[in-house]
Design a protein around this nucleic acid. Structure first.
Length: 563
RNA sequence: UACCCCGUGGUGUAAUUGGCAACACAGCUGGUUUUGGUCCAGCCAUUCAAGGUUCGAGUCCUUGCGGGGUAGCCA
């Protein structure tokens, strides 16, 4: 494809910065990294960062590393490392090299000694509470630590003894010597090392001092030759410190660029909130299909493509915005519409009997698997005189614009015939338990010689051939647009949707029994569904609803426009 | 009330870097359709405010207003 044929793609501010730095020669190439802390599961917000970092590297023929920011042994576990790697791969990315910040502990230590030697760091005996007091506040400057002027030999000696384990947890720290009066609190002699006796998931008990984020992150970037260190907005105030360390050490100096993290309506993606939902049993684990974790979306049936498209769609900027969750839902719909084969299943059945159907006759009708993708072929669906249709597709009396089946009316059965309803059977309470119809033999789908036109087409299943299915109808977990924004006296738990999961027995056309775990299909007129891992081997299928189809009729009726 | 960042339709992102505000989603109207799905067409903003620079400002300057972030030995 020639350049002139390509659509001019607008670049986001990060891409523009990269372009400028490449043009000016500040960097020769694009090296990025995705740096999760292994203390939880990845969520949809991480997907944005993953797509950004890996995507930028890809577009610029650069590299993107996976680096675990594992500097806090108290919170981190190998279990999370595994799940994070699995999720990144599922999303469709592969890192150029795998690293752990803990691999750099020795180098970090050496560099710390170097800063002590140049008079840029000192050992401080203030407790954490005292450190906080000395730090001052947002509006008032801090004051110098009484230990700030220790000699270099003394600092070196103390720091070595810290490493050797001579001091108690929290009794000393190593701090950068910058400026206690800086308006940027991060520059008020930030802590570089804390004494902490905890078993690290990788280094075990080898260390009793651990480097802090600020002292680790930029240096790790530097070691890996990262050119663009992309992070979220809350680190903006840390950038001067990031730069300070690189300059003092005189090492490769990456450029930190901050962007706004993803925020989606109706979602809670904070780690502590998700943890509460899992630990207190409001959902069934981290991969519950209602969870905004990547493992949750995977199990829900979302495709990696749809999540990547979504991330590309929402763009990258510095403005804190909230994306309407509908965009994510639309993204899966769009993808699945193209690829998911169509099937028929009835989830809230009512009997429909064809009174003029030849006794015992089975008619096979051809149905297109996917009108968007003729290559997916056709299948045969058996039809008998005993059918099941969706309860909401029948009304005894219906508004003018109700195009489905009503008493005295006609409707087309998808991949079947036109039927005319002449009667209904009710139980003692007046509930409709059976709908009686005749069928018109001249109206067979694909071979209609009648010329009849009917307004509506509904789906159905032959009761004699139906495959029983366990169907999990998932809906949004929260009823509120912003569950974090709670009213007086309430917590986000008060906004949980009682109806976020409904389990029903569905009746599907025969071939639904053949689908394998992970297969995604469209139940015509209902939505997209995926075969869940809980399905019995060779037995009953469990289907998760991924997302419903757009429901124009439902909206019309809700707005009173059905008449 | 210190410092930093951000303000473009209902929502989100653009605007060839100072030259007629574009794209997508949502919404509304209509059309096609054997899925009330898909698809197609149309409608929907003088860019937070006020000054200033300029032939010309969404873009630059000043002030104001609004929103977000920051006081872990968390990341």
């Amino acid at each position: 494809m020639s350049e002139t044929n390509e659509k001019r793609e607008s670049k986001n501010f990060v891409e523009q910065a990269i372009e400028a730095d490449l043009a000016s020669g500040r960097f020769a190439g694009v090296q990025t990294r995705f740096p999760p802390e292994p203390n939880g599961y990845l969520h949809i917000g991480h997907a944005k960062s993953i797509c950004l970092n890996f995507g930028l590297a890809e577009k610029n023929n650069g590299t993107c590393n996976l680096r675990f920011d594992d500097t806090n042994p108290a919170k981190e576990e190998t279990e999370y490392v595994e799940s994070i790697m699995e999720d990144i791969r599922w999303l469709g990315f592969e890192w150029d090299s795998l690293h752990f910040a803990s691999d750099y502990f020795e180098q970090l230590y050496q560099w710390a000694e170097k800063l002590i030697e140049s008079g840029d760091a000192y050992v401080c005996d203030l407790s954490s509470e005292e450190t906080r007091e000395y730090r001052g506040t947002l509006t008032s400057p801090g004051k110098n630590s009484p230990f700030r002027e220790r000699t270099i030999p003394e600092n070196l000696d103390l720091f070595r003894r810290m490493r050797a384990g001579e001091f108690e947890d929290g009794s000393k720290s190593l701090r950068a010597k910058i400026d206690m009066t800086s308006p940027n609190i991060n520059l008020r002699d930030p802590v570089m090392y804390r004494i902490l006796r905890a078993t690290h998931h990788r280094t075990g008990d080898q260390w009793c001092i651990y480097p802090t984020y600020d002292w680790t992150h930029g240096q790790s970037d530097s070691i890996e030759g990262i050119s663009f260190s992309i992070c979220t907005l809350e680190f903006e105030n840390h950038r001067p410190l990031y730069d300070w360390f690189c300059e003092k050490l005189d090492i490769h100096h990456p450029r930190q660029i901050e962007f706004a993290k993803l925020k989606l309506s109706t979602l809670m993606i904070g780690k502590r909130f998700m943890l509460k939902l899992v630990k207190e049993g409001y959902v069934n684990g981290w991969d519950d299909p209602r969870m905004p974790t990547l493992s949750g979306y995977r199990r829900r049936g979302y495709t990696p493509e749809s999540i990547r498209n979504f991330c590309a769609d929402v763009g990258v900027a510095k403005f804190n915005s909230t994306i309407d969750i509908i965009r994510l839902e639309n993204s899966v719909r769009e993808h699945l519409n193209r690829v998911a084969p169509r099937r028929m299943a009835v989830l809230d059945p009512v009997k429909l009997t064809i009174t003029n159907w030849p006794e015992g006759h089975v008619e096979f009708n051809e149905a297109v698997n996917n009108p968007e993708e003729p290559g997916q072929g056709k299948r045969k669906i058996p039809m008998s005189g005993n059918l099941l249709i969706e309860r909401e597709d029948f009304r005894e009396e219906a508004p003018r614009k109700f195009f489905r089946l009503k008493k005295g009316g006609a409707v087309r059965l998808r991949a079947g015939f036109i039927v005319d309803c002449h009667d209904v059977v009710k139980d003692e309470e007046g509930n409709i338990i059976e709908i009686l119809c005749t069928y018109d033999p001249d109206t067979k789908s694909g071979a209609d010689t009648s010329g009849r036109k009917v307004k509506g087409t509904i789906h159905w299943v032959s009761e004699d051939h139906a495959e029983k299915l366990d169907v999990r109808l998932y809906d949004r977990l929260f009823t509120s647009e912003n569950p974090a924004d709670t009213e007086e006296g309430k917590t986000f738990l008060d906004y949980l949707n009682d109806d976020s999961l409904r389990v029903v027995t569905g009746f599907g056309e025969p071939c639904l029994g053949d689908h394998a775990v992970g297969d995604r299909v469209q139940f015509e007129r209902l939505g997209y569904f995926v075969v869940d891992q809980d399905s019995e081997e060779g037995g009953k299928r469990v289907f998760n609803r991924i997302v419903t189809l757009r429901d124009t009729w439902g909206k019309m009726e809700a707005k009173g426009k059905a008449n």
